[in-house]
């Protein structure tokens, strides 16, 4: 009897090759649904990390008027290092800002005139500073307003963009996240299970004739189910891995698209445990669905 198990496992694998259209269709469906669930996870993770970060850190972007004395600006930057709750500061002189812009436009080293020939020759980008601070005192909202007023009062400052919107979202998120994240993950997992289950049921239906024959020659249900469990697990892993690859490619393209003032949202890839869930959940649900779809 020892030879049955490896044979049935091998049969589960070779069955995939015997029914290439059905197998490809199933992997395609699994990839799409897992990709959608992955997108949802990515959104959740991004909200949680970025808005969660707002609870401990607020970013202000300070713009100076063009032509303001750079010495005065540099002394203001030095002053920021001693602000209460200081975390980090990132600064751009007009030249650095232009170089950064040129690099982003794919024309490193180009002057303002070369980048924007339609603008007057003396046009320049403003000096800027991105200051990250930890909110002080019991009322973060009041602190944010006062700090913004402080930056605005400095000589030569044209505009201050804070992250109060994000802060408010962060506070809102803090309130709802505990009720949202895990129920959402559970809901998406159930949805994934149902969809994968139906996909596998279709695959089993396509092979009903084969199941009937196996039953007629004296196969126990476990013998019929095992190849479907193996096939389901392989299809699930394949679909999950493809979805993860698509998600990775998408993430590489959109990671920074919301990282601008006043949002400063960096899109995060689902962490390893969640990524593993994206492969293991479809594999497990496909394997279970394969077993359940074969009725006794």
């Amino acid at each position: 009897m020892s030879g049955i198990l490896p044979r049935l496992v091998r049969q589960g694998l070779t069955d995939l090759a015997l029914h290439p259209r059905a197998s490809i269709g199933a992997v395609f469906s699994l990839t799409l649904i897992t990709f959608l669930v992955g997108l949802f996870f990515m959104t959740l993770v991004t909200l949680d990390r970025q808005l969660g970060m707002a609870r401990v850190e607020t970013v202000f972007q300070v713009y100076w008027r063009p032509g303001t004395d750079i010495g005065r600006i540099r002394s203001a930057w030095a002053e920021y290092l001693h602000l209460p709750g200081f975390v980090a500061v990132k600064t751009y002189t007009p030249e650095q800002a232009m170089a950064e812009l040129g690099a982003r436009l794919g024309r490193s080293g180009a002057s303002a005139g070369q980048l924007f020939p339609f603008l007057p020759a003396d046009s320049a980008l403003p000096a800027t500073a991105l200051v990250s601070l930890v909110p002080q005192g019991p009322d973060p909202e009041k602190w944010a307003k006062e700090t913004e007023a402080y930056f605005r009062s400095q000589p030569g400052v044209a505009r201050v963009a804070g992250t109060p919107v994000r802060d408010e979202m962060g506070r809102a998120w803090k309130n709802v996240s505990r009720y949202v994240i895990w129920p959402s993950v559970a809901f998406m997992t159930v949805m994934l299970g149902l969809t994968v289950g139906n996909t596998l049921r279709l695959l089993v239906l396509a092979r009903a004739h084969e199941i009937e024959i196996l039953q007629l020659v004296g196969a126990f249900n476990r013998h019929i189910r095992l190849p479907f469990i193996v096939s389901g697990a392989v299809l699930g892993i394949g679909g999950g891995l493809f979805a993860l690859l698509l998600l990775y490619i998408l993430h590489a393209q959109i990671a920074e698209v919301l990282n601008f003032p006043p949002l400063f949202l960096r899109i995060h890839f689902p962490p390893p445990p969640m990524s593993a869930l994206l492969v293991l959940a479809p594999a497990a649900t496909a394997a279970i669905s394969g077993a359940l779809a074969v009725k006794g």
């Binding site: 030879g3 196996l214 020659v217 004296g218």
Partner: peptide, 17 residues
């Protein structure tokens, strides 16, 4: 989709021969 041999040996496989 299976060969003559695979079809005939199906019940034997299930008996673990």
């Amino acid at each position: 989709l299976r060969t003559v041999e695979e079809n005939i040996s199906l019940p034997l496989e299930l008996r673990g021969l």
